[in-house]
Amino acid sequence: MAAENPKDLKYSKEHEWARVSGGSAVIGITHFAQDSLGDIVYVSIPGVGSNVRQFQKMGEVESVKAVSDLFSPLSGKVVERNEELLKNPETLNKAPFGGGWLIKVHLSDPAEIDNLMDAEAYDRHTADGH
């Protein structure tokens, strides 16, 4: 059942991922995160034009069971957000690494990428149930 963590992504301890390309990054939450939350019913994410900061709260994701804060893995300005996801939050459960992406950010400090884990390190981070 455990879905593979894609090798081309960077990961945070708080279970967000970033797909960096050029000066921007698409951000989402991992399979591990959606699986821990269970059925997701609401997603609250920042609008286009707002700024997010690395490891700071940027929104909330709420499942039947519980509500969790979302933390941005990187700093920057939001240039796109997944409007479809707001209408169909269950996409986060079905495709956390694909159609369940949250926002696209124009990075203000690409060096922050070094603060994130690669897939192998993230595998180890989640192996003991964190």
Binding site: M1, G38, D39, S63, V64, K65, N93
Partner: peptide
């Protein structure tokens, strides 16, 4: 069955199964 187990009133109980709460 792949249940997610949680502590509940001193017991290790299934909170949900892979198909999900809904």
């Amino acid at each position: 069955s792949g249940a997610k187990l949680v502590p509940f009133a001193g017991w290790e109980m299934p909170v949900s199964y892979p198909q999900g709460i809904i």
